[in-house]
Structures are given as structure tokens and as C-alpha cells.
């Protein structure tokens, strides 16, 4: 089997000098596909995402992108390698306008960012109308759009999303999922954590169930949906 585009392999580690939270956790996603991580609260999903993005030190394991070992790169350097991350909380610059948020997303780029901003506005038309408004004043769903838009500004090859639909209404959630599929169709690899496991697994090429910092189940989205055990314990029957 060919090496996946992004892989965090057998990751073990925790915050600072604290106890390990991840125990040999492996996550991978192929180019242009969507991988979804689900699991109970406190399972270490966010921690695993941060580990892949280099925001905590791994004691064991490795992270590779396109075959290149990036385990020891800082988050900023991973941005330069084509990765982008939307954290679960405080993922926008609240006092800055929508457009400034996007500009900050492209901070490392020195070329013309106008076309990318237009692409983001095409993806999320509401942001075009609100571009002069402070991002902190927007509704929850709009804020998530700003957050995703900001991450897209570096023109990443991998987009990592930590619960992008947290706290938004069901209608907005469906809308966001559609947009995420659209992003994936454009060839961007997506690794995301989702609370709404059912919808997420429906659109997923690959699914991971994390429990206590370790892989409990792995399979395609459809396989996981079909697995009785997973259904009973994580998808509510």
C-alpha cells in the first residue's frame, strides 16, 4: 500500500511534563480524501490533532507528510509545508474584521493573496457581505466559516479541522459539511474531528474511533457505520 499523504504514526505523548494522553495513536489520510475522527469527550481527539500539527512534543511516533518526516518541525514550519489547522476553540481574531482575519491567515505568503480571498468569498458568500465587520460580532456558524476561510488562505494541501460544527444549528451544520466536501473535491486533503459522528462518517472516506488516546476502531466511513459495536457505543444505536 502506498504511503498516505499525511500520517501521524504510533503517536505517544501529552502536555508538557504531564501524563501521556495519546497512546500509540495512528491517524492517516490519503490525498484528496476526508478522514474523520470520532470518540467520546476527553478521548484525546483534539490532542491528537495538535500532535499532528506539532503543538505538543511526542515522546514516540512520527508525523510525515508526502513521505517527508516533519516530526520535529514547529507549527509555523508545518504551515509552510502545506498544512493548515482550525482549532476547536478561539479559532478567529475576534476584534479584527473578516477580511483582516483572512489576511492574517496568509501572513506567510508574499504573493498576491487577492485571488485566494475571492475564492474564500466564493466558498462562503456570506463572508463577502460581512468582510468589514469584526469577526467576533458574527454568529457561531459565520465565525466557523471565517475560521475555515482563514486556514484556507495559505492554500494548504491538508486542512485539519477540530469540530468545525460545534455549537451551530443543524441547518448551518449541513451547509458547512457541504462546503467541506467542496473543499475536498478541490483536491485538499481533510482530517477532521467531529461530534456529530453520523453525518461526519457519511461523508468520510476513512474513519477513526479514538478511546482514551488509542485507536479503538478504524475503517472506511461506511464500515464504521455498519459495525454494530461502533453503532451501539458511539452512534447511539
Amino acid at each position: 500500500m502506498a504511503e498516505p499523504h499525511l500520517i501521524g504514526e504510533a503517536m505517544t505523548g501529552g502536555y508538557g511534563r504531564g501524563a501521556d494522553i495519546l497512546h500509540g495513536c495512528t491517524l492517516s489520510v490519503d490525498k484528496g480524501e476526508i478522514a474523520v475522527i470520532v470518540g467520546p469527550n476527553g478521548a484525546g481527539k483534539s490532542t491528537a490533532m495538535k500532535a499532528v500539527f506539532g503543538m505538543l512534543n511526542l515522546r514516540e511516533g512520527a508525523v510525515r507528510i508526502g513521505g517527508e518526516d516533519i516530526t520535529h518541525l514547529s507549527p509555523q514550519d508545518r504551515v509552510a509545508k502545506g498544512m493548515a489547522f482550525v482549532p476547536q476553540t478561539s479559532n478567529i481574531f475576534p476584534s479584527m474584521t473578516v477580511e483582516e482575519n483572512l489576511e492574517m491567515g496568509a501572513f506567510l505568503r508574499r504573493d498576491d493573496i487577492r485571488p485566494t480571498i475571492e475564492q474564500v468569498y466564493d466558498l462562503f458568500p456570506i463572508l463577502r457581505d460581512k468582510r468589514r465587520q469584526a469577526a467576533g460580532e458574527l454568529s457561531g456558524g459565520q465565525r466557523q466559516q471565517v475560521a475555515v476561510g482563514r486556514a484556507l488562505m495559505t492554500q494548504p494541501s491538508v486542512l485539519m479541522l477540530d469540530e468545525p460544527t460545534a455549537g451551530v444549528s443543524p441547518i448551518v451544520m449541513d451547509e458547512l459539511f457541504d462546503r467541506i466536501i467542496e473543499v475536498a473535491r478541490a483536491g485538499i486533503t481533510i482530517l477532521m474531528v467531529e461530534q456529530n459522528a453520523r453525518q461526519a462518517l457519511e461523508i468520510a472516506d476513512k474513519g477513526y474511533v479514538l478511546v482514551q488516546g488509542a485507536n479503538a476502531y478504524t475503517g472506511t466511513g461506511a464500515e464504521l457505520m455498519a459495525d454494530d459495536e461502533v453503532r451501539r457505543t458511539f452512534l447511539g444505536g
Binding site: 504551515v79 475576534p94 501572513f107 506567510l108
Partner: peptide, 10 residues
Amino acid sequence: DNEDLALLSG
């Protein structure tokens, strides 16, 4: 505004 996100943005 948001130190961590600023770091993530490079």
C-alpha cells in the same frame, strides 16, 4: 487578539 492562532498563522 489571539496569541495561539497568531502563532499558527506564522
